[in-house]
Nucleic acid binder design. Structure first.
Lengths: 204, 204
DNA sequence: GAGAGTAGAATTGACATATATCAATCAGCC
DNA sequence: GGCTGATTGATATATGTCAATTCTACTCTC
């Protein structure tokens, strides 16, 4: 991985800039070195789903690269992002030579797959409160690693992470706030009663 | 792949029997040699999602095996299924030695991932008619490879493939029939107007 | 540097509608 | 002749849509 990271083509993206665009074709893949970005799948009818957020030291294959060279999702910078572009030939060479690396990549890939599975289950089988709870727990535990966490995502983006409209997301959040489970101010969310939130996530 | 296929532990499953059970742990993975099976993810509240059907010559990793040894979905036989169990050590050995194999497996894995992505998009962003259309096109093009195709799945199972209740599935099918887009008898479905069905799939 | 203006996001409310739920009836099958 | 699955209907509810309002951040001017 270090071998891949120490590449030349280092690029800086500003918030809002598109790092990878869905349905385009490239022979490069991207390695995030610093920052936060969103991975979203664009639907046919203008609806998007944010599959996950990615931060430091993350490999962005965007679905393609290994099976085909088409990008299957769009990756957009949320903060300033530093990343490097690596020629996929370089990856292929490494794969052919180093079976340990191939094994690790396979593991990584597998983990992605499972993550997507749980997203799928969550989005298709839970009611709104459960999905909102999932989003909040994901943000706290896997992205910000802090409890009152400060965000700079729009409500629209939160909604796209939760598979609903922004209005519905806002209403759901308000209910959680009224119930005393969370506390929110402009750019900050605090989870006050995590056990209850987990209970809601498991569909109460 | 042939090396893996020529294993000793050959097992026959009858329709309805569980080949792999979600949340169990094994150090074996399964290779389908013959038959048809459904791969479903069991939700917490009794709702299931059938992720896909699998037929001849398919590797069932069930999510785990490479990253952990926990099965993340349940696989159930729909017809009589012949398959073989392979010790995962054997796979790991092969991976370590043969980088070409690792590469192929990575490709395979990647394809699975993309398939799941499109399922996710379909289930979360489309209305019922679009989801039903997706299911029908999937069955015709990727599973049965025939136009009037004969099935032996229950309406409940079709519904679980389409992310809805069986009642909703039946109603949706009826509408398609009334519109002259499909024709259905007891165990057979014929797609009469495929272009229109594709249009519906793309959310009309 | 302070205030007015403005563009975009957040919020709220009323309403429409997709879809689930529940119960009843019907059909095919051993 | 009953049992399971399919179908239909009536109804409830979750969620989306649309429009109106408020809030916030930022720019421009003086």
């Amino acid at each position: 991985m270090d071998y891949l990271m120490t590449c030349k083509r280092n690029v800086i993206f500003n918030p809002g800039e598109t790092i990878i665009k869905q349905n385009t074709s490239t022979t490069h893949f991207v390695c995030m070195k610093e920052g936060l970005a969103k991975v979203l799948a664009e639907g046919t009818n203008g609806k998007n789903v944010i599959l996950k957020l990615i931060s430091t030291h993350n490999l962005i294959t965007a679905g393609g690269v290994i099976s085909d060279d088409i990008r299957h999702f769009t990756v957009t910078a949320l903060t300033q992002v530093e990343c490097c572009f690596i020629d996929s030939n370089r990856l292929h060479t490494l794969l052919a030579r180093n079976s340990k690396f191939a094994y690790e990549l396979l593991k990584y890939n597998n983990k992605q797959n499972l993550q997507m599975l749980s997203t799928l289950i969550g989005l298709t089988q839970k009611y709104m409160p459960g999905r909102v709870a999932d989003t909040l727990l994901y943000l706290k535990n896997e992205i910000f690693h802090a409890n009152p966490f400060t965000y700079k995502l729009s409500k629209q983006e939160f909604a796209e992470m939760s598979g609903m409209t922004k209005e519905s997301f806002i209403r759901s959040m308000k209910e959680l706030e009224v119930s005393g489970i969370i506390k929110q101010s402009r750019n900050e969310i605090e989870i006050l009663n995590e056990p209850e939130l987990i209970k809601i996530s498991k569909n109460g």
